[in-house]
Design a protein around this nucleic acid. Structure first.
Lengths: 340, 340
DNA sequence: TTGAAAGCGGTACCAT
DNA sequence: ATGGTACCGCTTTCAA
């Protein structure tokens, strides 16, 4: 084990020139050796000396300098802000990251909380990413997309409801979730359907399309839809349950399983029979939702593997103008249990 | 609105030289104007011309070139891999990001899934971050820390159980959670206490210290501790519940509320009375855990504001050798409900 | 008030 | 097989 010196304090960061000096070769040679450049042959003894020198100095190449020279990076930027918590997205993200790294991209989540629209696009563009995958709604405009592309981004992809001109939209049609839920409830004969909208900010991007999906189905079936605001607290649920009978609803689709669980418990505490008096349906098919009694009916959402998205990104990077066929990463199916 | 041209295809990325040419000034002047350099006075008409030229070209400065020249960046790197999902960490992260950006840092989460030890440290060092905040366990070694510091990181901070030499450890003592749970159960008179360890990978970093905390208390009270492996599935819970009576446990601390909910339901389905026959305690104090009956007792974990951590980071960056007093971001307190 | 030029750390072409 | 060197985009000192 080479005992590395301890005084990391004011010693300057070693550069390839330092390595070259120590090894007694030129910077070019250092570059060749450390990058295993095929086009040029370096003798084995030299390679050894260079490697040892690099090791001894603790040399690490400077990514910024490298990509400056190269004229491009392999950074995929994932602006992050209000991504919904939960196992679904978390699994999707992890897989996407993993898959992109296998394809030799550097995945960077850029904290963009509080950045909006073109300001955000500017900030992202400064990093010169080769691709941007915007999950969520940042108010990205066509101008913003232009800025990014002009700055070298070969692919700008939005996941979510916003279809921004110039960006490749991987539609993720949350309306489908509402459609599936609505269809199930209507088939069960329900005609006055409540739809819970979370009071929490940042969720409208998911909640609104789900509501719209229910409406689509209900309109076709002569059923009525009643939007209901609900905060993620027991008090809010109790308040809503308190005025429940006055609403005259025979079913409710509760945005997701968490809100559904909360509401269902409050309804039961209020003496409302589920599903007899009111059917309750959630979404996301959480394991925890199966623990309540009656077991919660839900909409299971399958998100196509992050691997697929990674490959789409890679294809776009290689051929920026290759038109991406319209592609939906999401599918939804009703999981009927006991609450409906 | 200046109609920007559409052919973003092969047009090269505009540089400050392009702006200078269009404005009829030198690159230096462009830099002065766009950075509002105080040390130099530029006439108002010139400023206008430069700004207009920049606008017209859609110029965005190149962050890599800038920090290359400056010799340092203001990037704070948060390596990310298996951060536990859930509102607790998600809120902490968001606040940390927000606070750091207020302090004018660029927050970057670097996907590090599958990177280990010194390999990870190398990868991070290539980005020349001014600070690294490692949440979770990456097998960071003292050598890894050295590499990072040598590459210019003024602060390397670990959140979690690993105390790596050279890094500033912000201890986050998960044992405390076990201690609080164990104390409560022992005080209630329980003497054979099961402790659930998740079978899922990546959680050992939290689960093991929690187990150790329970042991600490139990040993002092003459109580016995029995580790129990449980996967996050109904089948696994049913299997464990099936052999429950043979275990002869009068209490169980279930790692967190989700596992606790899962196990409690399985026990009830098996006819085990909670809390009469076995007390069940969770952790994290999830809202959902209050919906089961009996209501789940839990350990509430307060994480100190991300703002505090942001300020600590900033202090270290300004004065890298300023010894950071030992600091714990976490505190835990028992929330007694009906399941114990 | 503005411009010319050096230089940050790597890479790759062209010589030797 | 290896070295010299121009250049990527930007900032900043020094001169004019």
């Amino acid at each position: 084990m080479s005992q590395t010196p301890k005084q990391s304090a004011e010693r300057p960061v070693p550069t390839s020139a330092d390595v070259a000096r120590l090894a007694g070769v030129s910077r070019a040679t250092v570059s060749y050796v450390l990058n295993n450049t095929q086009a040029v042959r370096i003798s084995e003894p030299t390679r050894q000396r260079v490697r040892e020198a690099a090791e001894e100095l603790g040399y690490v190449p400077h990514a910024a300098a490298r990509s400056l020279r190269a004229g491009h990076s392999r950074m995929v930027l994932l602006p992050s802000a209000h991504v919904p918590v939960g196992p679904l997205y978390s699994a999707f993200f992890n897989e996407l990251q993993w898959a992109l790294r296998r394809l030799d991209y550097t995945v960077v989540q850029y904290g963009s909380l509080g950045l909006s629209g073109d300001q955000a696009a500017r900030a992202w563009a400064e990093l010169r990413p080769v691709a941007v995958v915007s999950v969520g709604s940042f108010g990205l405009t066509p101008q913003g997309v232009e800025v990014l592309k002009r700055s070298g981004a070969r692919a700008v992809i939005t996941l979510g409801p916003d279809h921004v001109e110039g960006a490749h939209a991987l539609v993720q049609d949350q309306r489908e979730v509402g459609v599936v839920a609505g269809t199930h409830l209507v088939e069960r004969g329900h005609r006055r359907i409540g739809v819970v909208l979370p009071a929490e900010p940042g969720l409208g991007m998911f909640a609104d399309p789900r509501l719209e999906g229910v409406r689509l189905v209900a309109d076709g079936a002569g059923a009525e839809v009643v939007p209901l605001e609900l905060a993620y607290t027991e008090e809010s649920a109790a308040a809503l349950a308190g005025r429940w009978r006055g609403l005259g609803l025979d079913a409710v689709f509760a945005y997701n399983d968490e809100y559904a669980m909360l509401l269902m418990r409050a309804l039961q505490d209020e003496g409302v029979d589920v599903p007899g008096e009111t059917a309750v349906m959630g979404a996301d098919d959480l394991l925890l939702a199966r623990l309540l009694r009656p077991r919660l009916s839900s909409v299971r959402i399958d998100m196509e593997a992050g691997t697929v998205l990674a490959e789409l990104i890679d294809r776009l990077v290689r051929d920026a103008d290759g038109e991406l066929e319209r592609h939906d990463l999401m599918s939804a199916v009703a999981v009927v249990r006991e609450s409906t």
